[in-house]
Amino acid sequence: MFRQLERSENISRLLDAGFRIALTRSSAAESEWASVVATTGVKQLYEKKYDQYDAANVIDFLLRDKTNPSSVISVIEGSRNNARLVRTALTREVWEATNECWMTLKALLSSPVRTRELPEILSTIRHQSALVRGALHGTMLRNDIYDFARLGTFLERADNTARILDVKYYVLLPSASFVGSSMDNVQWETILRSVSARGAYRWHHQGEISPISIANFLILSRQLPRSLAFCYAKIMDNLTYLEEDYETRHKCHDLAKTVRSRLKQTSIETIFEDGLHEFITEFIRDNIALGAQIEKDYRFNG
């Protein structure tokens, strides 16, 4: 359920960033919407339904469409259903926040979203998700249930950040035709915006923006809460707690450790030399595999 909640928040961020580009650079709008859809991993589904990428369709598909399993309404509904299933595992506050999140967003998304309401709706989605997370932090026992909730969050978050890099990796490559163009700057800014890291980046790099440092920030930063390295540090922590609790080490522990070590030992220069795209593709594959392994090791599906 926390995986789904995290996804709703990420979709909201992606739409926000895409919307911003579409408003201010109309020429780039269509390709921007296409990459937003690709990042959420539902490109095929979208293209089965629509012929072209325009704001209204993409917004509807990603926010309201129940045939899209990754739309906000689908994941929020899923999240709330899961919360009901495990109601006893949650504190009252977490359950109520989750339920309210669902009720609020269901009402908000009951009719088609008009462009002019979009900024408000996107910020409500993030607010609601923050409320659930706050209740989790403030009231839940730090037991295995909490650990699983956090694992879901960070697996999803790592997946999302990696997919943003996967779709946009070409604007981060030092290719001659792109360097220094204003379009590049906008693209880089969008990448940062879609992980809510524009301000953080500015602080870290004193205003200077370069593709290699953006990639470094999103992949290897130990401080940015949406970087791959950060997510894996957290995943490792929670898996270690589980190992201690259950007094059992599983295959998933070794898998996570391998990914974590790779993130810890490499440098951004090495990643670029070996190929950014290859690195990201491999990461996404490993991340999915880890999710599946955790489900298997802890018998989520019987």
Partner: peptide
């Protein structure tokens, strides 16, 4: 203005 009236900026080309 971008937050309150996004549709205006989709119609009218205003410099950033």
């Amino acid at each position: 203005m971008l937050y309150m009236f996004p549709e205006l900026f989709a119609q009218i080309k205003v410099r950033e």
